[in-house]
Each structure stands twice: as structure tokens, then as C-alpha cells.
Design a protein around this nucleic acid. Structure first.
Lengths: 286, 286
DNA sequence: CGATCGTCGTGCATTATTGCATGAGGATTC
DNA sequence: GAATCCTCATGCAATAATGCACGACGATCG
């Protein structure tokens, strides 16, 4: 049995078709089919049922999958461990954060880091979905919730104050009512976020003009006269078309945390970037 | 990183030289060198120190070894699992037992099994060292000590009586003394075996003429006039040049156990052979 | 101290594997 | 119901990996 074929088996099991699996791994569809056949032959069993809608695992295939997953986990740990021991200051770093935090807060830090360490390539991923640290889809993750996984090293980075913003020149509405006021707020999916809840309490009768899961889009909507919005101050204050509105009460702020896998603790370039991030972002408010 | 290279890495780590590792895996020395180089390059670290007496692991290599060993364990389990699901009555079965037990007790059973299932190849390994069931160096192991590993399924097979033998025509010595008697006994390594201890008690003053870890060799020595020997009755009784000597007391018998990995529980050919073994060997004395 | 044995690395021919292009089959869509 | 889109399997050419033969180096032994 060729151990590499297990990786192909995993991809097929997850994607369901040879083509999709091939794209994921970076090989071609015929190769996937041939290697799978080789694996099945080596094990003496049929791992997949060839149905009209793709490859579905047989019972034996399911059993093999469990083993293959454990092997993959171990292989990923091995690679992380190896990367963690790299002491050179070149290579790739992948960061993951929310959209506005990436553009507003991280971009300048990344730019400064790039000047100091030109041989390190920094990839900034801003995506709704969370990138996995254990699978090393990202090396450094910035997010609002603290990390609870034991193998993740994390620290609180800084506190982000929030404020209610309106288009420049608009007047603060009266707190407690909000009748006739149009607001831009979070996606329904994130309706339970503290700032959305605060907005609902402060202006209960306001009309929701539009929603977005993207803070920058919210800011843009707000600046274009789409309504009032609760925004992080670092984001709202830099847009000269926006003005913070004081209605007596303030929206809650949020802590931002940063985390990375402990296998990468000794990765020099990660350490260097993290130090710079802390200096620039957390340094002001330690 | 190519997962297959981890297997090559393991072989090199264990064997110490590329050539030996190549022989173990069934490839050639240049290939081993190239694949190792590829792995080191993929991980970005030097795994081995090239010394005059072979490849020795670096610190990073040792860390990788731990992961690779876990991966191997999982891969072996996967293969056992797959084999265990084979329901066909062909393929290979490897048995491991002591020398005399293999030739005297197992050979006739294997011969009968071969007639009934001609497509199954049975390999009988008689070796001083114990073959590993978890690593699947053997599928079925016969031995004197019960199995304690949780993943091994075992049962007591039969009780083997022992007796003191001499060359045909020789007279039983007087128990308790043994002066002037020459005996053949176990290797010093196995001096604490019950039958060796019994012999020492029964004939304390006997002279040890020769030793061997091989019961058949002991029988041969005994038959050639090399001295008296304690032998399993199934072995001693079938040699017409030997005669059992009654000196009033009898050496202790031994139980023989048979064990196999539970992953192979459903392996049809294993089940078939085991049933036959039990019928032929344990059937008489259940 | 020379000879021999073993090791590893490298050039080159062979072999095996891969990727591309194509065809067949089935489901969905208009 | 024909067209389209997807799937997978297969023949063939290009590519990559392998095995063999050789040379260099070092250790061991007589």
C-alpha cells in the first residue's frame, strides 16, 4: 500500500468526485481514478460505490476513512512541527481576520513588516468563514472571541471602541425612540452581536434600511446616506464622510484576540510579525 | 510533502544506512537517498546527520520520527483492518511457533489444510525471536506464555506433557543424585524454564554435556548419545531412537496458547485454519 | 601499509507514472 | 425531447521517477 494514496482517498471521500478531489490536491482526474483503483487493489476491497452522483463510501471505506483521518492529523502535526522549527526569516505567513480589521488595522502593520523583512510573503485573508489553525489554513488568526482550543496560543490584543455614525452633517436622534430613523445593521446571522443588540435597545423604533455582514460595506452604506450604523471607531473615524453621533449612551466595545498554533511557536517570521503587531496595536493600550 | 517518503524515512532511521533500508522496503539505495532528500527539502530541515557510520537522526529528525511512527501504526492498523474484512479463502497466512512445535505438531495440520484450501499459502516461521502480531509479521502465533495484550485474541490450545528421554536401551538413573549422568539442557538464556529447573532438582549432580535453545537439536543430541534430555512427549515419542525414562517423578508439562490480532477476526482463511488446528490439536483433549 | 569491504553520490538508459484529449454514459434544463 | 453539462474511463505522448553501473571516500583487517 502506498501511503500517498491515502491522501487521495481522503480527498475523494470529502469531495465526492474525482475531478473535485483532483483540483483540491493539484492533480488530474484520471490520476485520481487510477490511484484509487491501486489503493482498492492493495487493500483488496472496494472503498467507494460508484453512484450516479459521485463516489460514496462503502462500509469498508468508512472504516478506512477513520484511519486515514488520523494519519492526516498526524501528518499535519508533523508539518506544523517542521515549520515551527524554521528559524529563517523568509517564506510565507497567512493571516486571517475580519474584513475591516484587516484593511484598517492590519494593513499598515503588514506594510511596515514587509519593509523590515522583504523576503517574507504575508497573505491577508479576510473571509466570513474562520480559517483553521490546526489545519494550517492560516498561521495567525485575529478574531473577537477568545480561543479555547488547548493547542492554540492566544492573547488579547486590544479593545476596540464602537460608536454610532451618521453621514456628515446629520444630527443625533433621540435615544430610546428612533422613529423615522433609518439604520444599517448586521446580517441576521449575526443579529445577536452586542452592538446590534445595543442599537435595537437605543433606537427600538428605527427602520432597518439595509444589512450586511461586512463592516466596510456598512460604513459605505452609511456614508452614502443609507442610514445610521454602529461601527468600530478605527473604521468610522478614518472616513471623513462620517461623523460619530452622541446620543447619551455608547455602544459596547469589543476585545480582539490573536491566536496561533503552538507548533509554530518557534517560527521566527511568525514571532517577528506578532511582535510588530503587538507593538503597533496593543502598544498604545497595554 | 509525500506521505510515502515517511515510510522511507522510518526505514532509514531504523536501519541506519540507505542500502539496508532499501533492502527492507524493496527499493534501491539511490532511490532512498533521493526520496530522503526530497522529504528534507519539503520539510525544510535536515533530518539526518551523515556520519561515517551511517545516518543518525538530528533533533528535528527525532521529532519527525515520533510522528512518523504514529502514522505507521495507524497505517498498519488500517491494513490489518482491511485484511480482516477479506472473506475469500485465498492469500497468505503466516504462522509463528517454536521449532519443534512447528515441525511436529503444526506440519501435519498445515498439510491437511493445504489439501482442503489449495489457494491459501501457509508460511511457517520457527524462530527464536517472537514475531509481532501488531506489526503483522505473523498472523497466528503459538507460544507457551498466555497473551496479555488487549488487542490480541488468544486461547489455550492444549497441554503438552514432558518426559525425560535417553538413548534407546539406556537405564533410568536414580532420582535425587545424578552423579555420572550426562544431560542435554536448555540454553543458559532459558535456564529458568520449569523443565530445566525440574531437571536440576531431579538430578542435581548430573553433568551438563551440552545446551541448545532448540528442542529438536536436543533430541538429536540425546539420540546420538549426548546425554539425557527433558523433551515434549510429542517430540520424544516419535523418535524411535529415544526412550522415555521413568525415575519416579515427572517433569512439569506446559500449556500452549495460540493468539491472533483482533483486526483479523473476520479473516476467513485464518478462521478456517484456526478451526482445523483446534480440531486436530485441542480436539483430543478439550 | 596495502587490500578489501562497505558506504554514499551521480550519469544514463529504462521503466513507470502522469497529463492531455477524447468518447461514452447519465442527469438536468429549456 | 434535444441540447447541455456534468461525470468517469481509456489510448497515447510527454514527463518524471526508478534502477543500474560506476567512481570516490572511509573503515577494517591481515
Amino acid at each position: 500500500m502506498d501511503w500517498s494514496d491515502l491522501r487521495i482517498f481522503l480527498a475523494i471521500a470529502r469531495e465526492g468526485t474525482l475531478g473535485a478531489a483532483a483540483r483540491k490536491i493539484g492533480q488530474t482526474q484520471p490520476t485520481m481514478g487510477r490511484r484509487l483503483r491501486a489503493l482498492e487493489q492493495a487493500l483488496g476491497q472496494t472503498l467507494f460505490q460508484r453512484t450516479t452522483d459521485g463516489f460514496v463510501l462503502t462500509d469498508e471505506g468508512t472504516a478506512v476513512l477513520r484511519h486515514a483521518e488520523r494519519i492526516e492529523e498526524e501528518a499535519l502535526a508533523l508539518q506544523r512541527h517542521a515549520s515551527g522549527a524554521e528559524t529563517q526569516l523568509d517564506g510565507l505567513l497567512r493571516l486571517s481576520s475580519s474584513d475591516w480589521f484587516g484593511t484598517v488595522m492590519l494593513s499598515p502593520v503588514i506594510a511596515a513588516f514587509g519593509k523590515r523583512h522583504p523576503r517574507v510573503t504575508v497573505e491577508l485573508l479576510t473571509d466570513a468563514r474562520l480559517y483553521s489553525l490546526p489545519r494550517r489554513e492560516a498561521d495567525l488568526v485575529f478574531r473577537i472571541k477568545p480561543f479555547s482550543e488547548p493547542e492554540i496560543i492566544s492573547r488579547k490584543l486590544l479593545h476596540i471602541p464602537y460608536a454610532l455614525y451618521g453621514k456628515k452633517g446629520s444630527k443625533p436622534p433621540r435615544a430610546g425612540d428612533g422613529r423615522g430613523v433609518r439604520v444599517v445593521t448586521m446580517n441576521v446571522e449575526f443579529a445577536d452581536m452586542p452592538d446590534a443588540a445595543w442599537l435595537k435597545r437605543a433606537l427600538p423604533n428605527a427602520e432597518v434600511a439595509s444589512r450586511s455582514n461586512n463592516r466596510q460595506a456598512q460604513a459605505e452604506l452609511c456614508a452614502s446616506g443609507g442610514g445610521l450604523a454602529v461601527l468600530p471607531r478605527p473604521l468610522g473615524d478614518r472616513d471623513r464622510r462620517l461623523v460619530a453621533l452622541d446620543i447619551g449612551t455608547s455602544p459596547p466595545g469589543r476585545d480582539t484576540f490573536v491566536g496561533y498554533h503552538r507548533d509554530l511557536k518557534r517560527l521566527a517570521r511568525l514571532r517577528a510579525l506578532l511582535d510588530l503587531v503587538i507593538e503597533r496595536l496593543a502598544g498604545a493600550h497595554p
